[in-house]
Write a protein that binds this DNA or RNA. Structure first.
Lengths: 151, 151
DNA sequence: ATAATAAAAGATAAAAAACTCTTTTATTAT
DNA sequence: ATAATAAAAGAGTTTTTTATCTTTTATTAT
């Protein structure tokens, strides 16, 4: 079988997380960031990223302004959003409820064979994405220690 | 955005894990299991599952025999395979090396912003899927305590 | 040898995800 | 008011994944 890529999140979600971190950093100095700059800065296809930004905007995870000097930006409360909030907005909350084997009725009382094995993993994953807010990233991300582009 | 499903593994991989567990259980009493029975027992589309079984067979994770009384079966060494082996066979080993944000060059020295956050999670996930062999499941899976069908 | 069985392989179709291009709407500055 | 700017929205296309259907090959039992 030749699936090249199978990552934890969808491509859209990967782009969304990158974009949010990118804009978060620029938002420190009250800058608005245009879609072209976001696409370049995250190495994502511009028009595809535009769609994702629309989604994020519609879901109130980010602010936007049309017209000259317009673009995307974040206020203090936007920076409180976590990776989990972004994932929920783009990929939905299936990561919270869905069985790893895709079973609809999988539960504590009616578990699939791998249910209990994955329970802890998922708990840690969820805790992590909930605890990591954009504000927290902003503190960590200082000059050249991390990167968002595909080199 | 309206992706209904975004699970850890691909659909093919979910089916593969279910099928392997299903056949593993039947293999205790030297039974061979036909593709129809596997599809029914795991609530998967028959012809699609057939393709997956071919993959698993080609990759030597399971044995098969054509003709009357033929079907899929496992020997003792097949039962030593872990969930990780199945995942690697179907979804590839991207879970081992790929960056959560899809960056090709992400590494310890050149990390994406979420690299270190996800490092532990992935380590635990990998440990878990490697430690859970089919043989181990066979011991755990006793009468009606777990299920594989979508009810 | 022949018929029946069951997996393997091939070829195609449908659905979802990823990506692109064009038009519209809102805002700002002149 | 007008032109320029930039996001929003609409309408595609392409690629990948999932699923189905048909033909071939191997094996067994008669």
């Amino acid at each position: 079988m030749f699936q090249q890529i199978k990552t934890m999140f969808s491509k859209s979600c990967e782009y969304a997380i990158k974009a949010m971190i990118f804009v978060a950093q620029k938002s420190k100095e009250e800058q608005r960031v245009g879609i072209k700059e976001i696409a370049k800065g995250t190495d994502a296809p511009e028009h595809f990223m535009a769609k994702i930004m629309q989604d994020l905007s519609r879901r109130k995870l980010i602010h936007s302004a049309k017209g000259p000097n317009g673009g995307f930006y974040m206020d203090a409360s936007d920076l409180k959003n976590s990776i989990a909030d972004i994932v929920k907005a783009i990929d939905g909350d299936t990561i919270y409820k869905d069985c790893v084997l895709g079973l609809k009725e999988c539960s504590e009382k009616n578990p699939c064979p791998v249910h209990f094995e994955f329970k802890e993993i998922k708990k840690n994953l969820i805790k992590m994405i909930e605890n990591n807010t954009l504000a927290a990233f902003n503190e960590k991300l200082d000059s050249g220690k991390f990167f968002l582009r595909n080199k």
